[in-house]
Design a protein around this nucleic acid. Structure first.
Lengths: 203, 203
DNA sequence: TACAGTTTGGTACGTTTGTTCCGCTTTGTC
DNA sequence: GACAAAGCGGAACAAACGTACCAAACTGTA
């Protein structure tokens, strides 16, 4: 495959992501993607065997790039051994920024999660993605002094996913300040506090 | 509207939810819904002005029923003032059961969240749904002794949403025991421990 | 029973869809 | 510069689509 062709292929994938984010997976048709990418209709079938493949590969592209972005972020943060509040603020800011800058891709990524429910081929990739998240979160939890970083990472990853979904559906301008940051601060503070499950025996 | 007609209308909505869960929103066509519901094609346009309306109303039906189900659960649990571990186990069991029993509806509900990103009409309903969740979670947090139930509820709701999404995409048989319950136990224990954010000053 | 309103199921129409085909041009290699 | 591979774009196709229509059947009311 020539360089130019590869660029066109990628442009088709990005156009697909834009469409998913803006109008849902329903809106992804060969014609719509071609128009969005500014290429003739036949380009879509030249580069992808079927519409399903186009959709799947677009989602995988988004997932891979998102993982890379996250890894860069955490690695750039980790050596500084921040305090809990700084961690919370940094993570909240990154999450808010992702959603603000490119909500289409974020929506598309959630669609990936749902799509993987039905497509085993996607599930395998999703596992990689998920474990990358867990690994990074575990690193963060360890940094703030968690006594069970793996378990806490599960919670952090899930909570961030849930908060992101919430933010995507919210038009609030101040979601970051009002919800995201306070919630993450508290969550991280709890993890850092390292309170053992003493309340488990209570009843 | 006659009773029989109302039943047919509802059956169309349920058929739509089944299709979303099984094959995605793409698979929702008038013909597919009619076939799934076992009614002639024209019934779909008789009961719904357009395909969009059909989709939206199906999602709203699922959201309303889910909220009711949740409310029943929490209200039946609250008076007993359980310990933290019992709360975690109860919630984990309900979440796991929802996913196991009717994954199609759960997937559809997440699609509702994504769809509301683009459809203001849905967003309003989603707000109600979300605040019902928050209210219930807050009740639970208060019951286990949180000193900031509203904030903790935000975290709990987000974490449960994230864990559910994870479980939907996982084929693991033992997700409840291995992931869901431990994570919720720890989260609830942290909330119950009521450790103030003493670590916030650390650096 | 008669009547208006509702429901039913079959058919039909114009549009959009995924996909194929093919002649033409560009690209890298020898 | 010649040759094969890759890329290109327009036209065309059958299938599936959303939607509209209508005559027959049904339902509750009077």
């Amino acid at each position: 495959m020539y360089q130019k062709g590869e660029r066109r292929r990628e442009e088709l994938l990005r156009a697909t992501l834009r469409l998913i984010g803006a109008h849902g997976a329903d809106a992804v048709t060969h014609r719509a993607v071609a128009a969005e990418a500014g290429v003739p209709l036949s380009a879509t079938t030249y580069y992808f065997d079927s519409k399903e493949q186009l959709l799947q590969q677009a989602l995988l592209l988004a997932a891979r790039e998102e993982t890379e972005r996250l890894e860069r972020l955490v690695l750039s943060l980790a050596p500084q051994s921040l305090g809990v509040a700084e961690w919370a603020a940094a993570v909240a800011s990154v999450v808010a920024q992702s959603v603000r800058e490119d909500p289409a891709t974020q929506v598309a990524l959630f669609e990936l999660g749902l799509e993987s429910t039905r497509t085993p081929a996607l599930r395998a990739e999703l596992v990689d993605w998920q474990s990358a998240h867990l690994r990074l979160a575990e690193m963060g939890c360890r940094a703030v002094g968690s006594d069970e970083p793996a378990l806490d990472a599960t919670i952090v990853v899930a909570a961030i996913a849930g908060l992101m979904l919430e933010q995507l559906a919210s038009d609030s301008e101040s979601f970051e300040e009002d919800v995201l940051r306070p919630a993450l601060e508290r969550l991280f503070a709890r993890i850092a506090a390292g309170e053992p499950a003493r309340a488990l025996q209570a009843h």
